[in-house]
């Protein structure tokens, strides 16, 4: 993907995020968290298309895409999905190796 195409996709994503930000003031509150994780998934997809290889980003995107529509099932299901997603993120953020050496 060249920089022109990349810029165009990011521009579209910014549109999604800024219009969501404005619209969500008057929309269903749970759609706010949904739009956040969906935007995260779209961002990773853009990076993948641009040739950025990251197993952890791909894993996170796949987990998001698998569970994000739990928002339409119910608040408990959506919370459980988000809790699990946070756990996965922390698994990558702090994989159990010593944080800070001497």
């Amino acid at each position: 993907m060249d920089s022109t195409a990349l810029e165009a996709k990011v521009f579209d994503l910014i549109g999604y995020m800024t219009s969501s930000a404005r619209n969500l003031i008057d929309e269903t509150p749970a759609y706010g968290p949904f739009r956040l994780v969906d935007a995260a998934s779209q961002l990773v997809a853009i990076l993948e298309e641009a040739g950025v290889q990251s197993p952890r980003l791909t894993a996170l995107r796949q987990e998001i895409d698998k569970g994000k529509y739990s928002v339409t099932v119910g608040p408990d299901e959506f919370k459980a999905f988000l809790d699990a997603l946070v756990d996965t993120f922390v698994d990558y953020l702090d994989p159990g190796e010593p944080c800070c050496g001497p």
Binding site: D83, V86, D87, F89, V90, L93, D94
Partner: peptide
């Protein structure tokens, strides 16, 4: 802050 994440960290 995300309580479960901070608790783990």
């Amino acid at each position: 802050f995300t309580h479960r994440a901070v608790a783990r960290l």
